[in-house]
Design a protein around this nucleic acid. Structure first.
Length: 223
DNA sequence: AGCTGATCATGC
DNA sequence: GCATGATCAGCT
């Protein structure tokens, strides 16, 4: 497969992203020589990886921003016909042990969300995957209020994790950031802190942005 | 109808 | 198992 060179600077990345606006996923896939899946049931990350490829993101599973040299994290977000998010947005894995001394400022959530390039994509299931169109990209940096909301939720969630109450945390905690399972299935286990401070095993969790929060981000641009 | 918990693919 | 990319789908 022909590799696309990573963008050298931010304007170049934004130019590439803007050129994709209005284009269908089938068109992009054809350029990349890829088949379009009939649905996303077994290809949940397909859209995101397609957009990554087209923008020249360095593929990989490193816990870092997609464009580290530009300080930009790339997120595709499925939207309905009115431009509202259809799904929450996965941010990163949540640390459940060895978290002493971890602060918001040096957390992975804070680092990844410093600057995000949102690429909206039509996501309603009645639209065939190939016919779904890419929308106008949005470069977002959290404003002080958004940062404060994120930090507050993060600190509240991490505090409960530190106290060994991870099992008591549900997706209902947090205003804008939530903790949910993130694993192959519910049998996956990872180390976490127990209430007595020892270690135990629990299901891995991840941080997700709630749709009400990402809806505000998209609305700041499109109203 | 929206949300929460569960799940799918892939490369170490 | 962990981390990437996320969406699925049953339940409320």
């Amino acid at each position: 497969m022909n590799q696309i060179i990573p963008p050298e600077n931010l304007p170049e990345l934004l130019e590439r992203a803007h050129l994709m606006a209005g284009v269908s996923l089938a068109q992009i896939a054809a350029q990349r020589g890829l088949n379009v899946p009939r649905d996303l049931k077994r290809d949940k990350g397909w859209v995101g990886q397609l957009i990554e490829m087209e923008l020249g993101a360095t593929a990989g599973s490193k816990p870092e921003q997609d464009f580290l040299h530009l300080g930009v994290e790339l997120k595709t977000i499925p939207i309905d016909s009115q431009g509202r998010p259809l799904e929450t947005t996965y941010v990163c894995v949540a640390p459940l042990s060895n978290i002493q001394g971890l602060t918001w400022q040096n957390s992975l959530v804070c680092h990844k969300l410093q600057r995000v390039l949102w690429v909206p994509v039509e996501g309603e299931r009645h639209i065939p995957v190939g016919e779904r169109r890419i929308g106008t990209p949005i470069l977002w940096e959290p404003d002080p209020q958004e940062l404060q909301l994120l930090q507050q939720d993060w600190e509240e969630i991490m505090e409960l994790i530190a106290l060994g109450k991870v099992e008591k945390l549900t997706a209902r905690h947090g205003e804008v950031l939530q903790l949910r399972p993130k694993a192959a299935n519910s049998k996956a286990l990872t180390q976490s802190i127990a209430e007595d401070g020892s270690l135990k095993m629990t299901n891995p969790r991840g941080f997700y942005l709630k749709t009400s929060f990402t809806a505000m981000i998209l609305n700041k641009v499109f109203g």
